[in-house]
Amino acid sequence: MTANKDMLDRLEGVKAQNYSLGQVGDYEIKQLKIFKAVVDCGGFAAAESYLNVGRPTISIHISNLEARLNLVLCKRGRAGFSLTEEGEVIYRMANELFEFLDNFRGTVNSLNSQCTGQLRIALSDRVCLDPQSRFPELIKQYSAYAPNVSLVTQVSSMANIERIILNDEADIGFIPYHRPLEGLNYQHIYSDACYVYVAKGHPLTFMSEEEQAIKVDEFPASHSGVKLHDDLNEQVENMKLAAVSYFYDVRLSLILSGQYIGFLPERYAEDYEKLGLIQAVAKKQRTYTLGVAVAYRKTTQLNKPTELFLQALQKVFDINELSSAPY
């Protein structure tokens, strides 16, 4: 670089005109590659076979490059091919430029082939244990795509999951859908039917389904305590809401006490129902569909760990193209 600077200092007095190169693009880089090939081959004639281009075309490219740089780069004629002082500087700098581009390309390829860093996943209550989420299968597929990425997981409420994704404190969230939030993408993955459950021996269990539908609103109910989507709001607006329990395990405990009733996803409740500990009531009249989605931040460029996770999601759930959840 010192030799280049010395040469440039000597040339500064030679070039009288005030000239600025401006933006360098793909076209100039292509011309520089041709110029480098001519110099490496020792002249225009020898470069013909190397570039697989005729001598007139090579000459045009070199002339255009000289005009673009406002410099005479080489002498060609009966005396043979030789570089000017300016040409020697440009040749050295072109070599440095192409070496840098090669290193840049190699680094990018390495980053793509060996994805590293963290993937931060936040999950709503019990989602990872729901067979419909296929979470273990997702992690297995993701590990094949990104074996060098470490996972950081946490369980949190829907509202907090949305907040930390928006604040770039998490990359992926698994949440029951309850509202579309600006700034997030939601990819639907599965749905579950939800019913009102009561404990064994609860007064509602001794009634017909028609009576249950009439009486269900008279008993204390536990609910999630979050803003409800329209389908759920219609189901609970007349219920006697007496306790807040966001997490299913806590809500189930309140139901098992016999003092409260409450909505639970059918898949979550089925094992307890098989044991005879709880029972769904008014199933035809009191039910709604709970959609579960993978949420991630809207951005023009996802980080590589997140991008690979979404590819794993598409693979496992056989999704051709990611799209907004149909809510």
Rank of each mutant, 00 (worst) to 15 (best):
D217H: 08
R251A: 11
Y248A: 00
L252K: 04
L241R: 15
Q212E: 11
F219K: 13
D168C: 00
E162T: 02
E210K: 13
F174M: 03
Y248N: 01
P176I: 06
N160Q: 08
G183Q: 02
S191Y: 10
N233V: 03
C194Q: 14
E234S: 08
L166G: 00
Y197I: 06
A199Q: 13
G183R: 03
G173Y: 00
K200Q: 15
Y197V: 06
N238V: 01
Q235R: 05
V244K: 15
F174E: 02
S208T: 13
K215W: 09
Q235W: 00
K200N: 15
H223L: 05
S245G: 06
G201M: 06
I189F: 01
E218F: 07
A170V: 01
L166F: 01
C194H: 15
E234Y: 08
S224C: 11
P180S: 11
Y195W: 14
G173R: 00
Y197P: 05
L252G: 07
E169M: 01
Q235D: 03
L181I: 12
G183T: 03
M239W: 09
Q235H: 02
D249I: 02
E162K: 07
D192A: 09
L166S: 01
H178S: 11
A242D: 12
N167S: 10
N167E: 15
A221V: 07
H202D: 06
Y190A: 04
M207F: 04
E218I: 04
L166W: 00
N238K: 12
E234Q: 14
E210L: 03
L232N: 08
V226C: 06
Q212F: 04
N185M: 09
M239R: 11
V226W: 04
H202F: 04
V216Q: 09
K240F: 11
D171I: 01
K240V: 03
